[in-house]
Design a protein around this nucleic acid. Structure first.
Lengths: 156, 156
DNA sequence: AGTGAAATGACCATAAT
DNA sequence: ATTATGGTCATTTCACT
């Protein structure tokens, strides 16, 4: 199950997390391989699900999303079916740019964007707080990004 | 300052957030442009900082990071200089895969990974709690990812 | 290593301002 | 006229066998 990662694989993963659009030939140069084996390894890493995909990181403000926030949700104890439906709903909201179930005080953390404070209010009031099984919703606006989404470290 | 986004730009942004490594020619086809103007637009979007970069999304577990957590930090009132040093330190930790300053109860949220619970403990105890200006540190482990890092919505 | 595909840059066309 | 849009073609570079 747990695939062994060669030193080349690790160098590929390190490099491609930093520049997901680097041409294979350039990547090959950086990791010290010829183009052909480098491409084979890259494809294998994708195939094995170790590389899950590639995304362009886009400035939310350029797309008109002035507000970014984290929403902390506490759940009531409730029938398991509700939980599933809640999760499906959360996944469906386009404002939700990431969402995790947590251990501890807070049950669910939602990373969200909104065009402005008003539409964020509409989102939390009408579309989060009204979800069945939700006991409490607290929001904190992002004031600044100290460190943007960053690579997972890759040891040698 | 605020660049106008053409319908083509929006289609490019929508597509490339979903597949950051799509070949330009394919991208051009999807957005209904010839390759050359498509590439010009893509480069301009990068140049203008609207596209901030490209990353491969890598499975943290494949790299040996069994633990993912959010850490909530409260600060003491303190001299402004401390704040700057704190932020620099946070940025420097490789365990920190994202970090934001928040408005509200919690001052800073840290998204972190660790190889195991022990090393996560070492990280919070020795490298977070000891930072000057930190009043309180609380951690919640990620139990499951409900929605992984997702695109910013792009309206037409 | 070779072949077909893709990236890239120079240049042209059209339309709206 | 100028700006913004997109297309065509020729050349280099790349992906993949």
């Amino acid at each position: 199950m747990k695939r062994h990662l060669s030193p080349s694989d690790r160098r590929i993963l390190r490099t491609i997390q930093g520049d997901g659009r680097i041409p294979n030939s350039t990547l090959a140069g950086k990791v010290g391989l010829a183009a052909s084996p480098c491409l084979r390894r890259l494809k294998a890493l994708e195939e094995d699900g170790i590389i899950q995909g590639y995304r362009a990181m886009v400035d939310r403000k350029a797309l008109g999303f002035e507000v970014e926030a984290f929403v902390f949700i506490k759940l009531e104890q409730s029938e398991p079916g509700w939980r599933t439906r809640l999760v499906e709903r959360l996944k469906g909201y386009e404002e939700v740019i990431a969402c995790h179930a947590l251990a501890g005080e807070v049950d669910i953390i939602v990373h969200a964007v909104a065009r402005d404070i008003e539409s964020f209010g509409e989102f939390t009031m009408n579309r989060l707080l009204t979800l069945p099984g939700v006991a409490d919703v607290r929001s904190s606006f992002v004031l600044s990004t100290i460190k943007p989404q960053s690579p997972i470290p890759v040891s040698d």
